[in-house]
Design a protein around this nucleic acid. Structure first.
Lengths: 193, 193
DNA sequence: TCGATTCTTGACTATTCGTTCCAGAAAGAG
DNA sequence: CTCTTTCTGGAACGAATAGTCAAGAATCGA
């Protein structure tokens, strides 16, 4: 029929996600996106619609690509508490290395847009539910395997851990002090004992 | 000498703070500010400088006005755990009532700007230190009064509580589900036992 | 090769952005 | 009163914003 696109849709979307991740929604201009995505302005509009639609797609991709890493870490056989510790310290290490202090795109979206954009709120809630569920499954497994004997209410515990996790992501955007962040992790994980 | 200003500087700043609080930094235009502050454009620039300076002043005012409420709550004689519970459930109640889902201005600033604005990062760190210190003093008091016998490391505990608190403020922007938020509070406060 | 379709390109809208200019009104001091 | 200073209000600035248009280049089926 006709000509093919000269770019890969997924690669372009990945680039867009990275820009939104680093700069947020409002502070990202279409010009920023055109430059970082490496595609033409019109191709961008033809392929992804307007800025807001592109942002929502970027959230979807983040969920698929980044959140999957969490799921894999938690489903790996072995001590559950060790997996949680790895997750939490991963946030600290990642933040101390990241000069841009990007944090987590879902966390950023929740803060910047969820309050006034229903679609964004919905996507962040969906992401939250997925992570909470992964936490829950890990806790139940830890209980069954005799590791987490002290965990009485895995559902509430999963929600608590998700909350602490997101709090840590947020705090690490402003706090370069490793000791402070490690204190948070230490007390948080102590509830698993 | 000359004419007086027709507006109160503090009242205007308060209005500006409310706009930034509800809409964030980037999504707030000078036009928004002019309208909500109820003063003239030129007066705004004469009195507060540019948008960024006004934002930083709004952060200062927030710290003085809003954070003071936390300090007073924690310093009030009586059970410390009860004061913390009041603080945390206050976040839930406030969020469920607030149709704008404003959250906390410092929390929002941390998320939106701390990563790329050193002045904002510094102010949020200062706010964090002040609240952590208030938490710490409350915990030490609770220990001394024999209420919080289980608290071994009040410094780490204060940091943990601050983290959970900020996490809750963030989560409540997207989650209208009271049960979920209450689960978080329940587990968080259980570490005080 | 040819025609149909789709992609790419860069110029081009109209609007909004933060910020400044300027003329006139208001209010103190003498 | 007059002079001087400050505040007010609206128009205006250039730059940047999100989004569109039209024309040419590329690639398919036939």
């Amino acid at each position: 029929m006709a000509r093919h696109k000269e770019f890969e849709r997924d690669e372009a979307l990945q680039k867009a996600m990275e820009v939104f991740w680093a700069r947020g929604y409002e502070a990202t201009s279409m010009q920023n996106l055109v430059e970082h995505m490496g595609i033409n302005r019109q191709s961008l509009y033809d392929t992804f619609g307007d800025k807001h639609s592109l942002y929502l797609e970027a959230l979807d991709r983040y969920q698929q690509v980044e959140s999957r890493k969490l799921f894999e870490l938690l489903e790996k056989p072995g001590p559950v508490k060790k997996a949680f510790r790895q997750m939490f310290t991963g946030v600290i290490e990642g933040s101390l290395c990241d000069g841009e202090h990007r944090g987590c795109l879902m966390n950023n979206a929740m803060s910047e847009l969820a309050g006034r954009c229903a679609a964004t709120a919905e996507k962040t809630r969906h992401n939250m539910a997925a992570i909470e569920e992964a936490f829950y499954r890990a806790l139940v497994r830890g209980k069954k395997e005799g590791e987490l004997k002290g965990v009485r209410e895995p559902r509430a515990m999963a929600r608590f851990l998700y909350n602490s996790f997101q709090g840590l992501v947020l705090m690490s955007k402003a706090t370069p002090d490793r000791k402070t962040l490690e204190d948070v992790v230490k007390v948080t994980l102590s509830v698993l004992d």
